[in-house]
Amino acid sequence: MSQTVLYARVSTKDQNITHQKDQAEAAGFTIDRVVSDHGVSGIHTRLSERAEGKRLFDILRAGDVLVVRWVDRLGRNYEDVTDTIRNFMRRGVIIKTVINNMTFDGATKDPMQAAVRDALIAFMAATAQAQAEATKEAQRAGIEAARDDRKRYRGKKPSYDRETYNFVIDQLGLGEGASSLSKVTGLTRQTILRIRDKPDQADAALIKWGM
């Protein structure tokens, strides 16, 4: 019997697995099993090298569905993400994303459909890596700003956490609008716009609060 497995990954203590599972169920997925990694970077650690991520290669079989919030949960490295998705597709595993409701299935035999699918996989993997690099650079800038400003008042605590910040940045990069993101995240539209227009400052605010 086939199964639907949610793979969730969080890289900081501010993020949580429950949120990703709730998002998946709210999107209509019935999850049979959750496999999760805590405190693991998607940039430096391949899925097959993670404590729980490597279990996916053992438990997933042809006909199973692998659900992830977005491809960045599988990794933030272009080569790793594309290799991982193609590996699972060759096994007959279907990969689905909660965000944007994308489906990657290796069953198609039509060369044009396969080409479009592979191009989309490549684009999403490249976006994940580019966003990770941009976030890392923003964090460096934020740390420097926080260091220079450490003696001053930290200001109002951000209404968003690190996971929500990354999610908003990801979706803005994919062209999602501020109003729709406000509904999804529960943040005000003004907050979304501040993150969009001044991502470095929004990131620095999180760092100042140790988030």
Rank of each mutant, 00 (worst) to 15 (best):
Q23V: 00
T108I: 04
A205Y: 00
T188F: 01
A178M: 05
G39M: 08
G186I: 07
L172C: 09
I143K: 15
G53P: 03
T18N: 01
S36Y: 08
K109G: 12
A145Q: 03
A27Q: 09
S41R: 13
V168I: 14
I17F: 00
A145N: 05
R76N: 00
G210N: 08
M102L: 15
R196I: 03
I95C: 10
Q139F: 13
I143W: 10
T12E: 13
A205E: 12
T82E: 11
A107D: 05
V67R: 05
E133R: 12
M112I: 14
R150Y: 11
A27I: 01
V71A: 02
R117C: 06
A132M: 06
T103F: 04
A126V: 04
W70M: 03
A138C: 11
A141R: 13
D148I: 03
P158S: 06
I94F: 04
I169W: 04
M124W: 04
A202P: 03
A114T: 11
A62E: 11
T191G: 10
A27K: 12
S2Y: 09
S159M: 09
T103A: 10
R61L: 09
R91K: 15
T164R: 11
D200T: 00
I17R: 01
I99K: 02
N77W: 07
L6C: 13
L66I: 09
S159F: 05
E133D: 15
L6G: 09
K151L: 13
I99P: 00
Q113F: 12
S159A: 13
V116H: 01
A134Q: 13
N77A: 05
H38V: 02
E137N: 09
V65K: 06
R46D: 15
Q139C: 14
R76K: 03
I143Y: 10
Q190Y: 11
G28T: 09
V10C: 04
Y7I: 06
Q15P: 05
A132R: 05
I94D: 01
D14E: 14
E79V: 13
F167H: 11
L47W: 05
I17Q: 07
R194I: 01
D14V: 02
H38S: 09
L174S: 05
T18L: 06
V34N: 07
D22S: 03
D203V: 07
T82S: 14
S41H: 14
V98Q: 04
K208F: 02
I169S: 07
G173E: 03
H44P: 02
S36G: 03
V93C: 08
L193S: 14
T84P: 00
L56W: 01
K156M: 11
L66V: 12
I195W: 06
Y78L: 12
T84Y: 04
D118E: 14
D58Q: 13
A8D: 02
D58S: 13
A132S: 12
V71L: 15
A134K: 14
D14L: 02
T84W: 01
T30K: 13
T45G: 07
R33H: 11
S48H: 12
T84C: 10
L193G: 07
D105S: 15
P199T: 05
T12L: 08
A114I: 06
A8P: 04
Q15D: 05
G210L: 08
T97S: 06
L206V: 07
M102S: 13
Q23F: 00
N16H: 14
R61G: 04
V65T: 14
V168D: 12
K156D: 09
E144N: 12
S2P: 14
